[in-house]
Amino acid sequence: MINNRTIVAWLKLAARSMEENKGYLTDLDAAIGDADHGINMERGFKKALTLISPVEDRDIDAILKTTGMALIGSVGGAAGPLYGTFFLDAAKALSHLNELSNTDLVLLFESGLKGIQRVGKAKPGDKTMIDTLQPALEALRSAFAYGTDLIEALRWMVQAAKEGMESTIPMVAKKGRASYLGERSAGHQDPGATSTYLLIQCLLDAVESQS
């Protein structure tokens, strides 16, 4: 079962992952963007950790909301409003919960994905974080429908996220700075799709470390 401690553990792992992968994300971004995604994500999650420490014991929505606000105010690039909206909208959908059922977890990702689509206006296939998030959410849903337990469902989710991330390599970017490159954006993995994969991987790690 995911509770507020799991969520805090997830965010701490995410901050560490963004720090460790700062160079990797920035290199991916250097190929098709403005070479700041790693730096921005590290800064954003570092800020989120500082801001969530006073609310760590509160309900899950308070933690998610604080994270969203921190990302919006500190990332700087397009990932700020996008991931920020993901967490804010997830928080809105899950008010006053201390634990998440399987259905709640699906709702978290569903609301977050809808928020990203609303603000970013990207569709699947546009070479964005959506290409990771959408298949990951579908995998989570079908895993639960199939009756798997939480950890197994998250493994399905991570696998789908990885495939989604890799599916962005041949795509031609339709959104963001990479879209200015047109056809030349093909052949590079999207940095946003990659950071989304890392975040999902961190959730699995957080749940595994607590079980």
Binding site: I72, G76, G77, A78, A79, G80, P81, L82, G84, T85, R118, V119, G120, G176, R177
Partner: peptide
Amino acid sequence: LGSAVLSARLAQE
């Protein structure tokens, strides 16, 4: 450009 547009859209919302 880019995030400026997204931030403006989010602020509007």
